[in-house]
Write a protein that binds this DNA or RNA. Structure first.
Length: 575
DNA sequence: GCCGTTTTCGGCCCGACTGTTTTCAGTCG
């Protein structure tokens, strides 16, 4: 079975967990965690890189030793270093680390003193009152363990960005309305527009932190207060979403916003850079000795280390710091750059509004054009259109375009890519459309080779314009199908067609790393809502967030073009 | 275990809160 990046990343995580419990050098542990992260974010199979003769030590955080371990895992499927560790410590110990309040030291104590290495043993010992007897543990810790175990099922749950927004926005409004609160903002992965967030990190300016954290813990939706002090508090909302609040004085707001926006990897790298320049960065400011030289705004922090402002979406330590130093940061695309939307549905298939209503809603968003792209007949659950119904719709849209003012409708289809790579609509009908979006809606489990061939073949259809939701994943629900995205993107370049970044909150597909690949290949990406109702155009902001995480600029995005420019680009696809 | 525009050796980000302490270790972000 071929080894994928995720398999290797998991092995490195396990090694890191076990080393940590053993009390190994913390920097050695971090090295394994960094390498695991590098692999997860690589965007292409390290196995293929290696086969292509690439030097793996050129990857960030991978040195001679870890490159050799990667090679060993790819070749043998095993890792002797992990097996050796597992002889000394039971592998399931790392499960215990997932329990909040249990870190490596305590897990080690539980194992060493009570021979506990499974969650079941942990629960039994807690019930028997044996845990409170251990040095460094107490009755409260024991109770918290039991509480967590009881609710363990959803403790590791992450929230989709759009769902988190539904909780974040009213909470933010509540905090901003509190007396003494000058400003409040969500930082963390939410501000970086990650696809999912594990918790919300909120930052507020106020003189009296105590009063604000108290009011925060009294917010209507708070189920449980996990910690509370004069400058920070952590609560669990009824929805299961954890929220951290930090309160800082105005002069530290920028420093705190920067610090709590993260990512952790970005912070570590920037702090190291600051240190080299004789500065100390913390959440209260940038310091030279005991003198604060910056901190009231985020840009002041960047100025202090001589870097241009790095937008939150780029802060992952994936090359943005080097790019900033070299003056090569992208000027990221913004929501206001979009001139239209190339993917939506009406009542004719599985949408909820008429074509006219969709057009008017798009016009209200300031769009110049909107493509109507119903499903094709293969997708019967969505009342997909056959040739006859599509031809009728083409006529209807032509008529509507005569009457509508301020927006132009484009005629399109989201046509199913069948198992053999053919399209679910005759070419003669496709020829009459402005654009053809190809989409995989079935046979997700084909082998990598077959799935890739299927998509490449579909792209070769002379009318094929745009590949919809290229990975097919549904966030937290369905993994991407196995496809060689490198080849797909390369083929799109050769064929001269485009890729979609589907902005639906469940999809956010193209993935950020693939956006970067598309940009490097020079393949334009269309940020589409896939709207099924008039409200769905609002989702475009999440798509733009994803595009920004993928380093896309206005020029990299197809639907930032004017209608006239777009028409030229659509025509070009057909040669 | 990685890394180097001061280093191939000696560094590796920094502070708040909790619980168990009697001055602080462990955990977390």
């Amino acid at each position: 079975m071929p080894v994928h990046n995720e398999d290797i990343a998991r092995i490195f995580d396990q090694i890191a967990d076990l080393l940590e419990i053993e009390g190994a050098n913390p920097f050695r542990i971090r090295a394994y965690r960094n390498a695991s992260r590098t692999l997860r974010e690589l965007g292409q199979d390290v196995r293929l890189l290696r086969e292509a003769g690439e030097d793996l030590t050129r990857l960030p955080g991978i040195g001679k030793d870890l490159a050799a371990k990667i090679a060993e895992i790819i070749e043998t499927g095993r890792c002797r270093a992990l097996e050796k560790l597992q002889k000394r410590l039971p592998p399931d110990l790392s499960e215990l680390l997932r329990i909040p309040g249990l870190g490596p030291k305590r897990v080690h104590a539980l194992y060493h003193d009570l021979d506990i290495h499974t969650l079941e043993q942990l629960e039994r010992a807690a019930r028997d009152g044996r845990i409170r007897e251990l040095p460094g543990f107490g009755a409260k810790t024991e109770a918290r363990i039991l509480e967590t175990l009881a609710a363990h099922a959803d403790s590791s749950r992450r929230f989709k960005l759009a769902v988190a927004a539904q909780y974040a926005e009213p909470l933010l409004a509540y905090l901003r309305a509190l007396p003494g609160v000058e400003q409040a903002e969500v930082a963390g992965s939410y501000r970086r527009a990650k696809e999912t967030v594990g918790d919300l990190d909120i930052l507020a300016i106020a003189e009296d932190g105590e009063a604000v954290t108290r009011a925060f813990t009294e917010y209507d939706e708070v189920e449980n207060v996990l910690s509370q002090g004069p400058t920070r508090a952590t609560v669990l909302l009824r929805s299961g979403l954890q929220v951290d609040l930090r309160v800082v004085p105005a002069e530290s707001y920028g420093a705190a916003l920067y610090y709590f926006t993260g990512s952790r990897a970005h912070n570590i790298a920037v702090r190291r850079l600051a240190q080299k320049r004789g500065l100390k960065f913390n959440e209260y400011g940038a310091w030279r000795g005991r003198r604060r030289v910056a901190g009231d705004t985020e840009p002041s922090m960047f100025r202090a280390i001589g870097l241009p402002f790095i937008p939150p979406e780029l802060r992952e330590n994936r090359g943005e710091i080097e790019a900033a130093r070299a003056g090569l940061l992208p000027k990221l695309v913004e929501l206001g750059d979009l001139r239209g939307d190339l993917h939506c549905h009406s009542r004719a298939s599985d949408g909820h509004a008429s074509i006219r209503q969709m057009a008017e809603a798009a016009r209200d968003h300031g769009f110049e054009y909107l493509a109507i792209t119903e499903h094709s007949k293969r997708l019967t659950v969505a009342r997909g259109l056959d040739s006859r119904r599509l031809l009728q719709q083409i006529e209807a849209i032509d008529e509507l375009n005569e009457k509508l003012g301020g927006i132009t409708l484009l005629k399109g289809i989201e046509v199913d890519i069948l198992e053999d790579g053919s399209l679910d609509m005759p070419d003669a009908v496709l020829a009459r459309l402005d654009l053809v979006i190809g989409a995989v809606h079935s046979k997700f489990d084909l082998s990598r080779a077959k799935q890739t061939r299927r998509i490449l073949r579909a792209m070769d259809n002379p009318y094929f314009t745009l590949l919809a939701h290229p990975s097919g994943r549904l966030i937290e629900r369905r993994a991407p199908y196995d496809v060689d995205m490198n080849r797909v993107i390369h083929h799109a370049r050769q064929r001269g067609c485009y890729l979609e970044l589907n902005a639906h909150p469940e999809r956010l597909d193209l993935l950020d790393t693939h956006c970067q690949m598309a940009r490097e290949e020079g393949v334009l990406v269309s940020i589409n809502s896939d709207a099924h109702s008039v409200q769905d155009f609002d989702n475009l902001r999440f798509g733009v967030g994803q595009a920004r995480r993928g380093w896309l600029e206005k020029k990299d995005v197809l639907n930032t073009r004017s209608l006239a420019q777009l028409r030229r680009l659509l025509k070009k696809v057909r040669g």
